[in-house]
Simulated scan of single mutants.
Amino acid sequence: MSAASKWTPDMLQSPADRATHLEQRRAQLLPIVDDLRRLAREVQAEVKEYDSIEGDLPGQARLRAWYVSNPLFKAADDVEQAIADLISFNGRFQKSYEDLPVKRETKRQRKALAKGKAKQAIESPPADTAPGPPEKSHFGDVFDGLRRGA
């Protein structure tokens, strides 16, 4: 894929194309993350060296340095999170559109097989449990109602 062409949704249909897309984006974004972190550290070190401004409380200059440099660190974290989100997209796409139909078909086949076995069991019960009159116990008819309701 040339640098001038853009990715489209139909290009992300295969696992190989999604992996290529992820690697291209990772190659683009990781240098940006590294540059932002380097710049944030340098800015933080620079502003920590500034003298206190008249009227500062103790530690206020250090707090101001953190306040100023923190957005650069956050920007680096956000770009790094974008890479993690692309990885998440790949996993979700595979799970929802490639694995799910296979999983559902397997479940459908298992269900049909179980249904076929149940139907076969109803049509031809095993020989050792042939239906017949229930055994009479030596207690007579006293417990017949209890057995039926249980």
Results as ranks from 00 to 15, higher is better:
M1S: 14
S2W: 13
S2Y: 14
A3L: 14
A4C: 10
A4I: 11
K6D: 12
K6R: 14
T8C: 11
P9D: 03
D10C: 11
D10V: 09
M11W: 08
L12N: 04
S14F: 06
D17L: 04
D17Q: 12
T20Q: 09
L22E: 02
E23T: 08
E23M: 09
E23N: 11
E23L: 12
A27L: 04
L29Y: 05
L30Y: 02
P31D: 01
I32K: 00
V33A: 00
V33N: 00
D35Y: 04
R37Y: 03
R38N: 03
L39W: 08
L39F: 05
A40N: 03
A45F: 07
A45Q: 03
E46N: 11
E46A: 13
E46W: 09
V47D: 01
K48N: 08
K48W: 05
Y50E: 10
S52W: 05
S52C: 12
G55T: 02
D56G: 00
P58Q: 04
P58D: 09
G59F: 04
A61D: 00
A61L: 03
R62Q: 02
R64H: 04
R64V: 00
R64E: 01
Y67R: 08
V68E: 01
N70R: 05
N70Q: 12
N70W: 08
P71F: 02
P71C: 03
K74R: 14
A75Y: 06
A76K: 02
D77C: 09
D78F: 13
D78A: 14
D78P: 02
Q81Y: 08
I83T: 00
L86Q: 01
L86M: 08
S88I: 08
S88G: 10
S88H: 06
F89H: 03
F89C: 04
N90Y: 00
N90E: 09
R92Y: 08
K95N: 11
K95I: 02
K95R: 11
S96N: 11
Y97D: 04
Y97H: 07
E98K: 10
E98S: 08
D99R: 09
L100T: 13
V102G: 05
K103V: 13
E105D: 15
T106R: 15
T106A: 15
R110V: 13
K111L: 15
K111T: 15
K115Q: 14
G116M: 06
G116E: 11
K117I: 07
K119L: 12
Q120S: 13
Q120A: 15
Q120F: 03
A121Q: 10
P126S: 09
P126M: 07
A130T: 05
G132F: 01
P133Q: 04
P134A: 01
E135I: 07
K136L: 10
H138K: 14
H138M: 14
G140P: 04
G140Q: 06
F143M: 14
F143H: 13
G145D: 15
R147M: 13
R148H: 12
A150T: 12
